[in-house]
Amino acid sequence: MRRMLFLILFELKKILNRKKALLFLLALNIVPLVASLALIVAYVKFKGFGFGEVQFSVLHEIVKGLFTAHFKLFAFIAPFFLALVVGDSFSTELSRGYMKMLLLTPVRRWQVITAKTLAIMLFLLLAVCLGGFFLQADLLVARSLTQASGVLPANALPDALNIDISKPLYLVSTSSAFQLLVLTFVGNLMLIGFFIVFALFFESAILMSFTSLSALMGVHTFYLIASSLLNKIDVWYESAAKWCFTRHLDELFSVNTIETILENRGNLLTDNIFTAWQSSLGWAVLFYAIAVLLFSRRQILH
């Protein structure tokens, strides 16, 4: 157990030691980072002009857009970075011989896979939390902008302000933001598993990333386009696509899902969202099991 914890720490240290890691963390959270800057500038500026200029509804739209953009973009670019991180942790270590050194010590092979997987998960969690942190900061600034502007006094009644009651009074609730972060994390877990299976076949991180991303896109395209066309030939294609793992990803990161959670119309336990993230977890476990099986038979030749 102590050995396992140590191994996870070691793997995390190796990931964070690379200069790439910092770049990934920044690039993945570019939207909230830039937005933070923009909002701070806005705050300073409006403060100087004596407040009162920011409409609640406008700010509401902006913040909602910011959240949607962040989660959509995160879901879109995370695979590219994750593929490289996984590639570095597995393929590069295989080719450089670090893996061999690890396996000379009395650690079991499944422990190596598990420690690496957990370390990459922690890295992803760090990326997600960093985004969450900046989004939260954005929210704070935005809230203080509206409240200080006098458009929405902290304890005012909505009808007195002539605001449409069907719209929420707050910008984005903390619980929605938190649920979206969880969703991002869980959805990407499956991709980590998918990449690890690929990484065991390659000894070059770049080649591995390229191939696995191509495969991912291929599968996704099949589900998205080809299945609807091929469906007309045989319904089998449609049912195959329904079980395809990228379908669940698509569902998880659709604008629709993000907006449903943002507007508090649904949460993680809502039917289709629940099914999607449960299946994505299931796929993650499956990929992990395949990776362990493959790696336990792998010959380490250099």
Binding site: R3, F6, R96, P106
Partner: peptide, 29 residues
């Protein structure tokens, strides 16, 4: 393996770490 030490041809330690750090991290396993 807890009682066996192994040295392979061209040992590959982490290049960006010092000799001490490498021994600490790998050896503590």
């Amino acid at each position: 393996l807890e009682e066996i030490g192994a040295v392979v041809e061209n040992p590959a330690f982490i290049e960006s770490m010092s000799a001490y750090e490498n021994l600490y991290w790998f050896g503590s396993l």
